[in-house]
Write a protein that binds this DNA or RNA. Structure first.
Lengths: 177, 177
DNA sequence: ACCTGAACACCGTTCAAGT
DNA sequence: ACCTGAACACCGTTCAAGT
Protein backbone atom coordinates (compact mmCIF):
# COMPACT_ATOMS: atom_id res chain seq x y z
CA UNK A 1 0.00 0.00 0.00
CA UNK A 2 1.35 3.39 -1.00
CA UNK A 3 2.13 6.09 1.52
CA UNK A 4 -0.63 8.32 0.26
CA UNK A 5 -3.27 5.69 0.88
CA UNK A 6 -1.84 4.93 4.30
CA UNK A 7 -2.04 8.59 5.22
CA UNK A 8 -5.72 8.70 4.29
CA UNK A 9 -6.35 5.52 6.30
CA UNK A 10 -4.65 6.86 9.40
CA UNK A 11 -6.41 10.22 9.08
CA UNK A 12 -9.79 8.46 8.88
CA UNK A 13 -9.01 6.42 11.97
CA UNK A 14 -8.00 9.50 13.93
CA UNK A 15 -11.10 11.32 12.70
CA UNK A 16 -13.39 8.55 13.93
CA UNK A 17 -11.65 8.36 17.28
CA UNK A 18 -11.46 12.01 18.19
CA UNK A 19 -13.06 14.29 15.64
CA UNK A 20 -11.39 16.52 13.12
CA UNK A 21 -9.31 18.28 15.76
CA UNK A 22 -7.65 14.97 16.62
CA UNK A 23 -6.31 14.71 13.08
CA UNK A 24 -2.90 16.33 13.33
CA UNK A 25 -0.40 16.03 10.54
CA UNK A 26 2.21 15.04 13.08
CA UNK A 27 0.18 12.13 14.44
CA UNK A 28 -0.86 11.04 10.96
CA UNK A 29 2.78 10.94 9.89
CA UNK A 30 3.83 9.11 13.02
CA UNK A 31 1.18 6.39 12.76
CA UNK A 32 1.94 6.03 9.05
CA UNK A 33 5.59 5.43 9.86
CA UNK A 34 6.93 8.56 8.21
CA UNK A 35 8.11 11.92 9.47
CA UNK A 36 5.74 14.63 10.58
CA UNK A 37 5.99 16.53 7.33
CA UNK A 38 6.08 13.72 4.83
CA UNK A 39 2.33 14.32 4.22
CA UNK A 40 3.31 17.53 2.40
CA UNK A 41 4.82 15.41 -0.37
CA UNK A 42 1.37 13.94 -1.05
CA UNK A 43 -1.03 16.73 -0.07
CA UNK A 44 -0.74 20.49 -0.36
CA UNK A 45 -1.81 20.95 3.24
CA UNK A 46 -3.95 19.53 6.00
CA UNK A 47 -7.25 20.48 4.37
CA UNK A 48 -6.28 18.66 1.17
CA UNK A 49 -5.71 15.50 3.20
CA UNK A 50 -9.12 15.92 4.85
CA UNK A 51 -10.68 16.44 1.42
CA UNK A 52 -9.21 13.11 0.32
CA UNK A 53 -10.73 11.46 3.39
CA UNK A 54 -14.13 13.01 2.62
CA UNK A 55 -14.02 12.09 -1.07
CA UNK A 56 -13.18 8.45 -0.36
CA UNK A 57 -15.96 8.33 2.20
CA UNK A 58 -18.52 9.76 -0.20
CA UNK A 59 -17.45 7.48 -3.07
CA UNK A 60 -17.48 4.40 -0.84
CA UNK A 61 -21.09 4.95 0.15
CA UNK A 62 -22.62 4.80 -3.29
CA UNK A 63 -24.23 1.43 -2.66
CA UNK A 64 -26.70 0.19 -5.16
CA UNK A 65 -30.02 1.10 -3.63
CA UNK A 66 -33.36 0.22 -5.11
CA UNK A 67 -35.50 2.91 -3.59
CA UNK A 68 -35.47 6.46 -2.31
CA UNK A 69 -36.40 5.16 1.12
CA UNK A 70 -33.49 2.71 1.24
CA UNK A 71 -31.07 5.41 0.11
CA UNK A 72 -32.26 7.81 2.80
CA UNK A 73 -32.10 5.18 5.51
CA UNK A 74 -28.56 4.37 4.41
CA UNK A 75 -27.75 8.06 4.69
CA UNK A 76 -29.09 8.21 8.24
CA UNK A 77 -27.32 5.01 9.29
CA UNK A 78 -24.05 6.34 7.93
CA UNK A 79 -24.42 9.66 9.74
CA UNK A 80 -25.13 7.93 13.04
CA UNK A 81 -22.34 5.38 12.69
CA UNK A 82 -19.65 7.81 11.57
CA UNK A 83 -20.76 11.23 12.84
CA UNK A 84 -17.29 12.74 12.46
CA UNK A 85 -17.03 11.71 8.81
CA UNK A 86 -20.52 13.05 8.24
CA UNK A 87 -19.63 16.40 9.81
CA UNK A 88 -16.43 16.57 7.79
CA UNK A 89 -18.11 15.88 4.46
CA UNK A 90 -20.76 18.54 5.01
CA UNK A 91 -18.52 21.06 6.68
CA UNK A 92 -17.34 24.22 4.99
CA UNK A 93 -14.43 23.83 2.60
CA UNK A 94 -12.12 26.67 1.75
CA UNK A 95 -10.51 24.70 -1.06
CA UNK A 96 -12.06 23.33 -4.22
CA UNK A 97 -11.65 19.56 -4.32
CA UNK A 98 -12.53 18.12 -7.75
CA UNK A 99 -12.90 14.58 -6.44
CA UNK A 100 -15.19 15.78 -3.66
CA UNK A 101 -17.35 17.74 -6.10
CA UNK A 102 -17.62 14.80 -8.47
CA UNK A 103 -18.64 12.41 -5.70
CA UNK A 104 -21.29 14.81 -4.41
CA UNK A 105 -22.69 15.37 -7.89
CA UNK A 106 -22.93 11.64 -8.56
CA UNK A 107 -24.80 11.05 -5.30
CA UNK A 108 -27.24 13.84 -6.08
CA UNK A 109 -27.91 12.53 -9.60
CA UNK A 110 -28.59 9.02 -8.33
CA UNK A 111 -31.07 10.48 -5.86
CA UNK A 112 -32.92 12.43 -8.55
CA UNK A 113 -33.11 9.27 -10.70
CA UNK A 114 -34.71 7.29 -7.90
CA UNK A 115 -37.19 10.07 -7.19
CA UNK A 116 -38.18 10.23 -10.87
CA UNK A 117 -38.74 6.48 -10.89
CA UNK A 118 -40.94 6.70 -7.81
CA UNK A 119 -42.91 9.49 -9.44
CA UNK A 120 -43.46 7.32 -12.50
CA UNK A 121 -44.99 4.55 -10.39
CA UNK A 122 -47.10 7.00 -8.42
CA UNK A 123 -45.33 6.45 -5.13
CA UNK A 124 -44.30 10.09 -5.04
CA UNK A 125 -46.30 13.09 -6.28
CA UNK A 126 -45.56 14.65 -9.66
CA UNK A 127 -43.49 17.79 -10.09
CA UNK A 128 -39.89 18.78 -10.61
CA UNK A 129 -37.89 15.71 -9.49
CA UNK A 130 -34.87 17.83 -8.56
CA UNK A 131 -36.95 19.95 -6.25
CA UNK A 132 -38.69 16.97 -4.67
CA UNK A 133 -35.33 15.24 -4.23
CA UNK A 134 -34.03 18.36 -2.49
CA UNK A 135 -36.96 18.28 -0.08
CA UNK A 136 -36.46 14.63 0.82
CA UNK A 137 -32.73 15.15 1.13
CA UNK A 138 -33.25 18.17 3.39
CA UNK A 139 -35.37 16.17 5.86
CA UNK A 140 -32.91 13.33 5.87
CA UNK A 141 -29.90 15.56 6.27
CA UNK A 142 -31.56 17.71 8.92
CA UNK A 143 -32.80 14.75 10.95
CA UNK A 144 -29.42 13.02 10.75
CA UNK A 145 -27.50 16.17 11.64
CA UNK A 146 -29.70 17.06 14.60
CA UNK A 147 -29.59 13.48 15.85
CA UNK A 148 -25.82 13.19 15.45
CA UNK A 149 -25.38 16.38 17.47
CA UNK A 150 -27.86 15.23 20.11
CA UNK A 151 -30.32 18.02 19.34
CA UNK A 152 -33.24 15.81 18.42
CA UNK A 153 -33.89 14.19 21.76
CA UNK A 154 -33.65 17.45 23.68
CA UNK A 155 -37.39 17.80 24.10
CA UNK A 156 -37.96 14.68 26.13
CA UNK A 157 -38.75 11.03 25.93
CA UNK A 158 -41.29 10.30 23.21
CA UNK A 159 -39.07 11.59 20.46
CA UNK A 160 -38.84 10.31 16.95
CA UNK A 161 -35.53 9.09 15.57
CA UNK A 162 -34.29 10.23 12.15
CA UNK A 163 -35.63 7.14 10.36
CA UNK A 164 -39.09 7.85 11.70
CA UNK A 165 -39.00 11.41 10.40
CA UNK A 166 -37.93 10.25 6.94
CA UNK A 167 -40.78 7.75 6.89
CA UNK A 168 -43.21 10.39 8.13
CA UNK A 169 -42.35 12.63 5.18
CA UNK A 170 -42.61 9.81 2.64
CA UNK A 171 -45.95 8.88 4.18
CA UNK A 172 -47.34 12.39 3.83
CA UNK A 173 -46.12 12.55 0.24
CA UNK A 174 -47.78 9.23 -0.61
CA UNK A 175 -51.16 10.26 0.76
CA UNK A 176 -51.49 13.04 -1.78
CA UNK A 177 -52.92 11.07 -4.69
CA UNK B 1 -19.70 47.09 29.83
CA UNK B 2 -18.03 44.33 31.89
CA UNK B 3 -15.04 42.45 30.63
CA UNK B 4 -16.99 39.24 30.33
CA UNK B 5 -19.53 40.78 27.99
CA UNK B 6 -16.78 42.43 25.95
CA UNK B 7 -15.08 39.05 25.51
CA UNK B 8 -18.29 37.51 24.17
CA UNK B 9 -18.74 40.46 21.81
CA UNK B 10 -15.24 40.20 20.43
CA UNK B 11 -15.49 36.43 20.07
CA UNK B 12 -18.72 36.81 18.10
CA UNK B 13 -17.13 39.36 15.80
CA UNK B 14 -14.15 37.09 15.15
CA UNK B 15 -16.48 34.14 14.58
CA UNK B 16 -18.45 36.02 11.95
CA UNK B 17 -15.33 37.23 10.20
CA UNK B 18 -13.35 34.01 10.00
CA UNK B 19 -15.18 31.04 11.44
CA UNK B 20 -14.58 29.27 14.71
CA UNK B 21 -10.91 28.72 13.98
CA UNK B 22 -10.38 32.46 13.83
CA UNK B 23 -11.52 32.77 17.45
CA UNK B 24 -8.28 32.55 19.39
CA UNK B 25 -8.15 33.41 23.04
CA UNK B 26 -5.13 35.57 22.36
CA UNK B 27 -6.89 37.68 19.73
CA UNK B 28 -10.05 37.89 21.83
CA UNK B 29 -8.01 39.17 24.77
CA UNK B 30 -6.11 41.61 22.62
CA UNK B 31 -9.19 43.15 20.99
CA UNK B 32 -10.88 43.31 24.40
CA UNK B 33 -7.94 45.28 25.75
CA UNK B 34 -6.79 42.68 28.24
CA UNK B 35 -4.00 40.15 28.30
CA UNK B 36 -4.14 36.90 26.36
CA UNK B 37 -5.13 34.85 29.36
CA UNK B 38 -7.52 37.20 31.10
CA UNK B 39 -10.41 35.20 29.53
CA UNK B 40 -9.57 32.38 31.93
CA UNK B 41 -10.80 34.55 34.80
CA UNK B 42 -14.26 34.57 33.18
CA UNK B 43 -14.47 31.24 31.35
CA UNK B 44 -13.07 27.85 32.21
CA UNK B 45 -11.60 27.47 28.73
CA UNK B 46 -12.11 28.34 25.09
CA UNK B 47 -15.13 26.09 24.63
CA UNK B 48 -16.90 27.72 27.56
CA UNK B 49 -16.45 31.10 25.89
CA UNK B 50 -17.86 29.69 22.64
CA UNK B 51 -20.79 28.24 24.57
CA UNK B 52 -21.55 31.71 25.93
CA UNK B 53 -21.49 33.06 22.36
CA UNK B 54 -23.88 30.30 21.23
CA UNK B 55 -26.23 30.75 24.18
CA UNK B 56 -26.53 34.50 23.65
CA UNK B 57 -27.16 33.91 19.96
CA UNK B 58 -29.90 31.39 20.61
CA UNK B 59 -31.56 33.54 23.27
CA UNK B 60 -31.42 36.63 21.07
CA UNK B 61 -33.32 34.95 18.27
CA UNK B 62 -36.49 34.13 20.16
CA UNK B 63 -38.51 36.76 18.34
CA UNK B 64 -42.22 36.74 18.79
CA UNK B 65 -43.47 34.86 15.78
CA UNK B 66 -47.10 34.29 14.96
CA UNK B 67 -46.81 31.19 12.80
CA UNK B 68 -44.80 28.08 12.21
CA UNK B 69 -43.97 29.35 8.75
CA UNK B 70 -42.66 32.68 10.02
CA UNK B 71 -40.55 30.92 12.65
CA UNK B 72 -39.01 28.59 10.08
CA UNK B 73 -38.28 31.40 7.65
CA UNK B 74 -36.60 33.30 10.48
CA UNK B 75 -34.51 30.21 11.16
CA UNK B 76 -33.40 30.00 7.53
CA UNK B 77 -32.66 33.72 7.31
CA UNK B 78 -30.55 33.52 10.45
CA UNK B 79 -28.58 30.51 9.17
CA UNK B 80 -27.82 32.27 5.89
CA UNK B 81 -26.91 35.59 7.47
CA UNK B 82 -24.68 34.16 10.21
CA UNK B 83 -23.54 30.75 8.95
CA UNK B 84 -20.67 30.57 11.41
CA UNK B 85 -22.93 31.19 14.41
CA UNK B 86 -25.35 28.61 13.02
CA UNK B 87 -22.60 26.04 12.66
CA UNK B 88 -21.33 26.79 16.14
CA UNK B 89 -24.73 26.43 17.81
CA UNK B 90 -25.42 23.08 16.17
CA UNK B 91 -21.90 21.75 16.41
CA UNK B 92 -20.87 19.05 18.83
CA UNK B 93 -20.24 20.20 22.39
CA UNK B 94 -18.02 18.28 24.74
CA UNK B 95 -19.14 20.37 27.70
CA UNK B 96 -22.58 20.71 29.21
CA UNK B 97 -23.67 24.32 29.08
CA UNK B 98 -26.82 24.94 31.17
CA UNK B 99 -27.62 28.23 29.46
CA UNK B 100 -27.28 26.61 26.05
CA UNK B 101 -29.55 23.72 27.04
CA UNK B 102 -32.18 26.07 28.45
CA UNK B 103 -32.19 28.24 25.33
CA UNK B 104 -32.54 25.21 23.05
CA UNK B 105 -35.38 23.78 25.14
CA UNK B 106 -37.28 27.08 25.09
CA UNK B 107 -36.99 27.32 21.31
CA UNK B 108 -38.25 23.77 20.88
CA UNK B 109 -41.23 24.35 23.21
CA UNK B 110 -42.27 27.49 21.35
CA UNK B 111 -42.13 25.52 18.11
CA UNK B 112 -44.36 22.74 19.48
CA UNK B 113 -46.86 25.34 20.72
CA UNK B 114 -47.15 26.92 17.28
CA UNK B 115 -47.58 23.53 15.62
CA UNK B 116 -50.36 22.62 18.05
CA UNK B 117 -52.14 25.88 17.29
CA UNK B 118 -51.91 25.22 13.56
CA UNK B 119 -53.28 21.74 14.09
CA UNK B 120 -56.24 23.21 15.99
CA UNK B 121 -57.12 25.46 13.06
CA UNK B 122 -56.67 22.65 10.56
CA UNK B 123 -53.67 24.20 8.83
CA UNK B 124 -51.55 21.22 9.81
CA UNK B 125 -52.64 17.58 10.02
CA UNK B 126 -53.49 16.02 13.38
CA UNK B 127 -51.09 13.79 15.28
CA UNK B 128 -48.37 14.10 17.90
CA UNK B 129 -47.37 17.79 17.77
CA UNK B 130 -43.85 17.04 19.01
CA UNK B 131 -43.28 14.60 16.18
CA UNK B 132 -44.72 16.92 13.55
CA UNK B 133 -42.64 19.78 14.92
CA UNK B 134 -39.55 17.56 14.63
CA UNK B 135 -40.34 16.86 10.99
CA UNK B 136 -40.77 20.52 10.10
CA UNK B 137 -37.66 21.43 12.05
CA UNK B 138 -35.65 18.71 10.31
CA UNK B 139 -36.54 20.02 6.84
CA UNK B 140 -35.75 23.57 7.86
CA UNK B 141 -32.49 22.68 9.54
CA UNK B 142 -31.41 20.41 6.71
CA UNK B 143 -32.23 22.93 3.99
CA UNK B 144 -30.49 25.72 5.89
CA UNK B 145 -27.43 23.63 6.65
CA UNK B 146 -27.03 22.36 3.09
CA UNK B 147 -27.52 25.86 1.72
CA UNK B 148 -25.08 27.45 4.18
CA UNK B 149 -22.45 24.90 3.16
CA UNK B 150 -23.16 25.38 -0.54
CA UNK B 151 -24.41 21.83 -0.98
CA UNK B 152 -27.88 22.71 -2.17
CA UNK B 153 -27.02 24.38 -5.46
CA UNK B 154 -24.56 21.67 -6.47
CA UNK B 155 -26.94 20.06 -8.93
CA UNK B 156 -27.30 22.98 -11.27
CA UNK B 157 -29.31 26.07 -11.96
CA UNK B 158 -33.00 25.51 -11.32
CA UNK B 159 -32.50 24.74 -7.66
CA UNK B 160 -34.82 25.60 -4.85
CA UNK B 161 -33.63 27.76 -2.00
CA UNK B 162 -34.27 26.73 1.63
CA UNK B 163 -37.38 28.90 1.94
CA UNK B 164 -38.92 27.16 -1.05
CA UNK B 165 -38.32 23.74 0.49
CA UNK B 166 -39.93 24.79 3.77
CA UNK B 167 -42.95 26.08 1.87
CA UNK B 168 -43.08 22.90 -0.21
CA UNK B 169 -43.33 20.81 2.94
CA UNK B 170 -46.00 23.02 4.50
CA UNK B 171 -47.91 22.85 1.22
CA UNK B 172 -47.85 19.04 1.15
CA UNK B 173 -48.95 18.93 4.78
CA UNK B 174 -51.86 21.28 4.12
CA UNK B 175 -53.19 19.28 1.21
CA UNK B 176 -53.86 16.29 3.38
CA UNK B 177 -57.30 17.18 4.73
C1' DA C 1 10.37 11.32 -6.59
C1' DC C 2 10.21 10.94 -1.78
C1' DC C 3 11.74 11.74 2.76
C1' DT C 4 14.10 13.96 6.99
C1' DG C 5 15.45 17.35 10.84
C1' DA C 6 15.64 21.92 12.27
C1' DA C 7 13.31 26.01 12.53
C1' DC C 8 9.39 29.67 12.69
C1' DA C 9 5.22 31.57 14.07
C1' DC C 10 1.34 30.37 16.33
C1' DC C 11 -1.98 28.40 19.85
C1' DG C 12 -4.42 26.67 24.50
C1' DT C 13 -3.42 26.30 29.05
C1' DT C 14 -0.99 26.72 33.57
C1' DC C 15 1.40 29.10 37.18
C1' DA C 16 3.50 32.36 40.17
C1' DA C 17 2.98 36.88 41.11
C1' DG C 18 0.92 41.40 41.36
C1' DT C 19 -3.29 45.11 42.70
C1' DA D 1 -11.83 39.66 42.50
C1' DC D 2 -9.31 40.50 38.46
C1' DC D 3 -5.28 40.83 35.76
C1' DT D 4 -0.30 40.13 33.98
C1' DG D 5 4.11 37.94 32.04
C1' DA D 6 6.72 33.96 31.56
C1' DA D 7 6.64 29.38 30.50
C1' DC D 8 5.20 24.60 28.56
C1' DA D 9 3.60 21.48 25.29
C1' DC D 10 1.61 21.46 21.10
C1' DC D 11 0.52 22.48 16.07
C1' DG D 12 0.77 23.77 10.68
C1' DT D 13 3.99 25.03 7.53
C1' DT D 14 8.54 26.06 5.31
C1' DC D 15 13.23 25.16 4.05
C1' DA D 16 17.67 23.25 3.25
C1' DA D 17 19.47 19.01 2.76
C1' DG D 18 19.71 14.10 1.88
C1' DT D 19 18.70 9.30 -1.18
Amino acid sequence: MGTRETLVDVATRLLDAGGVEAVTLREVGHQAGVSHNAPYKHFANKEALLAAVAARELAGHMHETRSVRALMHNYVAWALKYPNRFKLVFGTWTIESPELTVAATNAQERMVELVAEAQATGELPAGDPIRLASLIRAVTHGAADLAAAGHLSAAGKGNADPDDLVDDLLGYLRQRD
